[in-house]
């Protein structure tokens, strides 16, 4: 396998993982209207939980330098399942508390502050996750035994499978009455509540689905990179997801994937080959500026994104005659509703 092939597969893996995260962010931000600018914290919870489940206890393998909780030494898939479970549980606590009474700016502000606060806490309080050094030494399934090129394909398969699973689940949800109820809450909370929809439960459901995707994506990222530290979940990472959803189209799963692809490959990967000048920290900063400007440009000119959310179209229910009602449900004539809709 040439270096180029290796690189392409690595990019594809990160494309899948970022796609999972963008789907999760879109579920909260696009589908349910929860402006969760601390989404990346959920990703971090998944990554850290997977990390501490995978590695050996702190005093063991690294000469006793690191300090962190846990260290169960579990193998795949138990470490990943643990990571997902912890993320969903954390999402339940955070979402349950935040969504209970907060809305709009207040919700966004409090979630943002919680994200910043957790970042400060994890950086300063070493016994939790080893501060800014982070947790290292996780290994992805097969990484230790397989040939690196074979392993790349295996992990690409795992990532792609995870992306497909999350996408299918989310598409089922968003095309179901549950998904439409979420959008109703997003568009007008009072009206939805007046129609006997429980806004808190619907938003919490979206928050938990988002947490699930964050857990899957964060867990796989930690396993693939083999480590996780504070740098991995800075607000910049959240901007990447925000950009993906704004560019692709809010409230559409496929939009989030397209946006994720554009932002990741179009800006983050394409600029990687620019000749490096000066400070090595310069490029990441310029990338962030470019992504930020992209968000502003889309908000200014095309806030609905490249693939705008489609208006729901429903077939008008066929007129129910009295005899049909008396005789009970008869055989449904296929295509009747569609034809009725076409006539309208």
């Amino acid at each position: 396998m040439s270096a180029l092939e290796f690189y392409i597969i690595t990019v594809a893996i990160f494309g899948c993982l970022n796609g999972i995260l963008a789907l999760g962010f879109n579920m909260q931000f696009g589908q349910a209207g929860i402006v969760n600018l601390a989404f990346i914290v959920l990703v971090a919870v998944g990554a850290y939980a997977t990390g501490i489940a995978s590695v050996q206890p702190a005093s063991g393998s690294f000469g006793g330098t690191g300090t962190y909780i846990g260290g169960f030494g579990w193998a795949f898939p138990w470490n990943m399942l643990f990571g997902i479970a912890v993320t969903v549980l954390f999402g339940l606590l955070l979402g349950g508390a935040a969504l209970l009474r907060l809305r709009h700016d207040y919700l966004a502000l409090c979630l943002f502050a919680i994200g910043v606060g957790l970042q400060v806490l994890v950086t300063d309080y070493l016994p939790l996750f080893n501060g800014s050094e982070g947790i290292v030494g996780m290994s992805a399934p097969g990484q230790d035994v397989l040939d690196p090129s074979v392993f790349q394909f295996v992990f690409l398969g795992i990532s792609a499978a995870a992306l497909v699973i999350v996408f299918v689940i989310f598409t089922r949800v968003t095309s179901s009455p549950l998904g439409r109820a979420m959008k109703a809450v997003r568009d007008d909370e009072e009206a939805a509540a007046a129609n006997a929809k429980n806004p808190w439960r619907l938003k919490l459901t979206a928050f938990l689905l988002g947490s699930f995707a964050a857990g899957v994506g964060g867990s796989l990222q930690a396993l693939y990179i083999g480590g996780w530290s504070v740098q991995g979940w800075s607000p910049t990472e959240n901007l990447v997801l925000l950009a993906a959803v704004i560019v692709g189209g809010r409230g559409r799963n496929i939009g989030a994937l397209v946006g994720s692809f554009i932002v990741l490959e179009g800006i983050l990967e394409a600029t990687r080959f620019l000749p490096s000048i000066g400070d090595p920290a310069l490029l990441p900063n310029l990338q962030t500026i470019a992504i930020g400007l992209l968000v502003l440009a889309f908000l200014w000119w095309r806030p609905e994104g490249i693939l705008p959310e489609r208006k729901e179209r429903f077939a008008k229910p066929a007129a129910i005659s009295l005899t049909a009602a008396l005789n009970g449900p008869g055989p449904v004539v296929a295509g009747e509703t569609e034809r009725t809709a076409e006539k309208l």
């Binding site: 700016d105 901007l239 950009a243 500026i289 992504i291 968000v295 908000l299």
Partner: peptide, 11 residues
């Protein structure tokens, strides 16, 4: 508005 000031902040 929220997305805008967040993006501006990171810029």
């Amino acid at each position: 508005a929220l997305a805008m000031t967040f993006a501006a902040s990171l810029i």
